[in-house]
Structure formats: C-alpha cells, structure tokens
C-alpha cells in the first residue's frame, strides 16, 4: 500500500506545482454553471492553504449565500465573489494598523521557537527608524544560545542600540533595563525581544506574564503593542498558539513571517475567525526591507494564486 500511495502522490504533487487556480480556472472554463464539484475544488484550495476545516466550511457557506444574493450562476463569476468573501474575513480596520506615529511606544514581540521574532524585530526597527523615530532594542531572549548576539547583529545593521544582559539572566530585568534606558534617553520606540516558547509550557508562559507586569508598572505612559509572530508555514497549530498566548498577553497584532515560500498562511483566516486578532505585518524575505504592512487584498490574491 505504501508504494502505491507514494506513486499516486508524486502524480498529485506534480499537479500541485501548476497551481490550484489553474485547476479552478479549468473547471470554470469547462463548466458553464457553478456546481458542487467546483465548490469542492475551492474547498480543497482553502484547506491546502491551511485555512482549516471549520473556517473553510464557513467560507464555503458564505460563498454560497453570496452567490445566491448576487445571483451569480455562471462559474466565471465565482472567483470575484470568493475573493470578496475572503477579504471580508480578514479586512483590517484603519485603527488596527501599526501606528508609526505615537510616541513613546513599547513593542513586545512574542511567539514560539523559530518563527522569526528576532529577524522581524530588526525589520520593524528599521521601519520606525525610516519614519524618523528613535528606536532602542531590548534583548529579552536570554535563553537561546547566541540569541543576544543575533539581536546585536541586527542592531548593528540598522544602527540601533541594544540593551542586553548576559545569557541566562532574568528576561523581566532586561526589559526593565530597556524601559529605564528608553525613558532616560527619551527614545520614541522600545522594541523587546523575548525567548521563543512553546505555548503549552505553563512556566514559560508565566514568565511572559511577569514581563508584562513590569511593562505595565514601569512604562504606563507608553503606547503598548504586543505582536505575536506566526510562521506562515505552520498549520492548524497556529490557532492554538494564538489562543494560548492571548491568555497571558493582550496581543494587539500578528506578524506573519516566511510568506515568501510556498506556504499560504491561511491559518490566519481561522485565527481571525476564532481568536479575532488582526494581522498587521507580513515578512517576505531575509533582507531588512522585507517586511510589509498587511493588506487583505494582496494576501487573498496570493492565497488563491
């Protein structure tokens, strides 16, 4: 059975490479009217983009209704309606964009291991700096080997100071130092790195809680942004990550990284649905410029490409 499955998969995957839109387009061209087969294909596209069963079902239902509402019967019209439905799902209100103006501001960056927190911080710092703001970084990942050095390299790249202690020190105390430094230097934006932690590790999550207490106590005047970094390659577990981190942190937005690969990052649709946290930034590569403000339409276009 194994062999046959492998063989069949290779065929299947070759198809994948041609892109799903092509297959949908084919169906759209082959069939005059919208039918169950076409809807099933669309369902497959969504699931393959990591949107997840629950949200996919919801989207398909909304699509059905919207098609009825707009009296779209010809398959040629389905793509536009689907796009609208999806954009409607993740559309961002103006006030939930990253605020590049308000100062002082403190940004805490959290997430599981290996999603790209430190890299994202380098990029975010660069954005604020380009916007004429003074920026300071705090090396709150005191756990992972050489994480502090990694942040310092980014600091050098974008010419921004990094407040750090040695590896193994208390992250809350590093953040405290960062806040004091930001205050005395009158820095506009303080961006804090934290150690990657799996969201199901209670003690690590509690440590994060302590960091937030410090921020609340020491820097109440600063506008607070808490960004959860999610890897676009992650599947349905991203929803668990968002849920669990939200319990200890008042997450204000998501940074979706690694969208320059072939992963679609569809899990954020489910997250919007179930946890209601907006995506604010997307990471699209390794260079310092590769971070963009999230745009629903662009995202949906990429999802369906």
């Amino acid at each position: 059975m194994i062999k046959s499955l492998f063989a069949k998969l290779t065929d299947g995957l070759n198809k994948t490479k041609h892109g799903f839109t092509e297959r949908i387009d084919q169906l759209i061209n082959n069939y005059g009217t919208i039918d169950e087969e076409l809807l099933e294909e669309i369902e497959e596209v969504l699931i393959t983009a990591d949107v997840g069963m629950n949200t996919t079902m919801k989207v398909i239902e909304e699509l059905r209704e919207e098609l009825k509402e707009r009296k779209v019967i010809e398959s040629i019209g389905i793509k536009e309606v689907l796009k609208d439905v999806l954009i409607n799902h993740i559309a961002l209100e103006e006030e939930s964009m990253v605020d590049y103006e308000t100062t002082p501001q403190i940004i805490l960056v959290i997430g599981v291991n290996g999603v790209g927190k430190t890299t994202s911080i380098g990029k975010i710092a660069n954005k604020f700096k380009k916007n004429g703001k003074s920026v300071l970084l705090a090396a709150g990942d005191t756990f992972r080997a050489a994480a502090i050095d990694q942040l310092k390299v980014w600091g050098n790249r974008v010419e921004i100071d990094v407040i750090a202690q040695q590896e193994g020190s208390d992250p809350a105390s590093v953040i405290y130092d960062g806040i004091q430094a930001a205050k005395s230097r009158k820095t506009d934006v303080l961006i804090c790195d934290t150690a990657g932690r799996l969201h199901n590790k209670k003690n690590l999550i509690m440590e994060l809680h302590k960091v937030f207490k410090i921020v609340e106590r020491e820097y109440p005047e600063a506008k607070r942004e808490v960004l959860l970094v999610l890897d676009a390659t992650t599947g349905q577990n991203a929803i668990n990550q968002a849920k669990n981190f939200k319990e200890v942190a008042d997450i204000t937005g998501i940074v979706l990284t690694k969208l320059d690969g072939t992963a679609k990052g569809g899990a954020i649709l489910a997250i919007k649905d179930e946890v209601d946290i907006p995506v604010k930034l997307v990471g699209l590569g390794e260079s310092v410029e590769d971070l963009e403000d999230f745009d629903g339409e662009t995202f949906v276009n990429a999802l369906l490409s």
Partner: peptide, 30 residues
C-alpha cells in the same frame, strides 16, 4: 507544526538532494 506546505518542502529537498532521513522537531508542543 508545519502545515499543508510540508509536502512541497519535503519533495523539493528530496528531489534536489536525495534525503536519507528526517528529523521532526518541536514535538513537545501540542
């Protein structure tokens, strides 16, 4: 924790390099 894209990643690496095996990480998560 990799999602649907795992197939594309694995197939690509395997095709270009001829893998001999796999190591799965972060299984201490949920």
């Amino acid at each position: 924790m990799t999602g649907q894209d795992a197939v594309n990643v694995a197939e690509s690496f395997n095709q270009q390099l001829g893998l001999t095996g796999v190591i799965l990480t972060k299984l201490d998560g949920d």
